[in-house]
């Protein structure tokens, strides 16, 4: 029997440990989120994309004209989760929703909570609630809640 210290050992973490750069457009979007502001990018046709898109899927132009949008918006669609799963960030009943922020022409995927399923429909007004600490990530918006 060999002593256990003779065995070759290597650490193994089951993960994809990639680091990503935010790039010039998304960097501005995330910097602004850190200051509780939501930006979008505006195309030459006047269409505003938020979260900031790097290019316009219709005209194919690259986008770098930043404009502020939100923090209020309306629900374009939602799916209601009564029993959140382990990986979900919100542990109470909540919705994933597409939210068209005021001043934007595209929608942002995010979460809505602090309400009941019956409170929501397409067109319902919601507003961003901010995380206590910001990390310049999309989760700096903690979730959306019904507009008072």
């Amino acid at each position: 029997m060999s002593d256990s210290k003779d065995l070759l050992r290597a650490p193994f973490e089951l993960a994809y440990n990639y680091k990503r750069s935010n790039g010039p457009v998304m960097s501005k979007f995330f910097e602004a989120l850190g200051e509780q502001k939501i930006l979008g990018t505006k195309s030459s046709t006047g269409k505003v994309f938020s979260p900031a898109a790097e290019f316009d899927p219709d005209t194919h132009e690259s986008l770098n004209d930043m404009v502020e949008v939100g923090p209020g918006g309306s629900v374009e669609s939602f799916s209601w989760i009564e029993a959140p799963q382990n990986h979900h960030l919100i542990k109470e009943p909540f919705a994933f929703a597409l939210i068209k922020l005021d001043g934007a022409d595209s929608s942002m995927l995010h979460m809505i909570t602090d309400c009941n399923e019956a409170d929501l429909s397409i067109g319902t007004r919601v507003t961003a609630a901010w995380s206590e600490t910001t990390t310049k990530r999309i989760t700096d918006i903690k979730f959306f809640t019904l507009e008072k």
Partner: peptide, 12 residues
């Protein structure tokens, strides 16, 4: 960047 950190499941 915008979607994965929110952990949306395929059904939702």
């Amino acid at each position: 960047y915008y979607i994965s950190p929110l952990w949306p499941d395929r059904v939702s």
